[in-house]
Design a protein around this nucleic acid. Structure first.
Lengths: 126, 126
DNA sequence: ATAAATCGCTTACAAATGTAATCAAAAAGG
DNA sequence: CCTTTTTGATTACATTTGTAAGCGATTTAT
């Protein structure tokens, strides 16, 4: 059985950087994050890195004085876990109402609708 | 601007009961919850009721000695908020990958697929 | 009427989370 | 070489969350 760590909201941002960019130094991660949102404080990011290591969501190897961090947790699995969790909490685990909600609420472009329909067709007639 | 309260995971369960059943006494809520999961402790539920009142997610009126609680927060709005939040955190706000994930990962029954397709068609040709 | 159950109110307390600051060692710049 | 910067480690601290227990008033059952 896989041990999918529980990743908090803010920690997700850090994980996303690592999943996207692969092995990174703390500095790289901080750069990537402040890029998107200047409010990220370097010290805060360091704290999260430490916590993620403790949770075994990531690991590092020394590279000179600094560390090179890399994900341990698998992105797809974390996504699945978070998704199931959300689905359960908000929609009692029922997929259809959830999809309906998104399709209704967020305006989908015609192309998005086409693409989704293609997806459904693939699933529909295997 | 609406003030949509921040509802925690466990508090969601309480809210769902209130949204589903309308005005309820604490006792009713506790019953409903323990029905689904015997692990709910009455005192714990009371705590959440108090916190939800403090957050103005619910309110109550006296009914004899007990209280009759009812939702203040609108379900649809809370659902939207939680959904946007989840979408942003896990899928960077991109709807298509999210929908794809669910359609791919969770097996949809043929009827669910048909229904979803209908939904998309309604959206597709207004 | 007296004891038991129930109510809401108040208080408790650890873990998780967000948000950093301090500190010591090491590296880099001048 | 000495100063500034950088880095990881350690420590701090308020807030939120999960999970209740205690207390005093009030019903309710006996």
């Amino acid at each position: 059985m896989k041990n999918i760590p529980k990743i908090s909201e803010a920690e997700w941002e850090v994980m996303k950087v690592l999943w996207a960019k692969g092995p990174c130094s703390a500095r790289d991660i901080i750069l990537a994050l402040t890029q998107g949102d200047p409010d990220w404080h370097p010290k805060t990011v360091k704290t999260f890195l430490g916590r993620l290591v403790a949770k075994k969501a990531i690991a590092f190897e020394r590279e000179g004085r600094a560390y090179l961090y890399h994900p341990l947790a698998n992105r797809a699995e974390c996504v699945s876990k978070a998704s199931e969790n959300f689905l359960k909490r908000v929609f009692d685990g029922a997929l259809r109402p959830m999809l309906a909600h998104f399709v209704e609420n967020r305006k989908l472009s015609a192309s998005e609708i086409r693409e989704l329909r293609r997806l459904l067709e693939q699933k529909g007639e295997p």
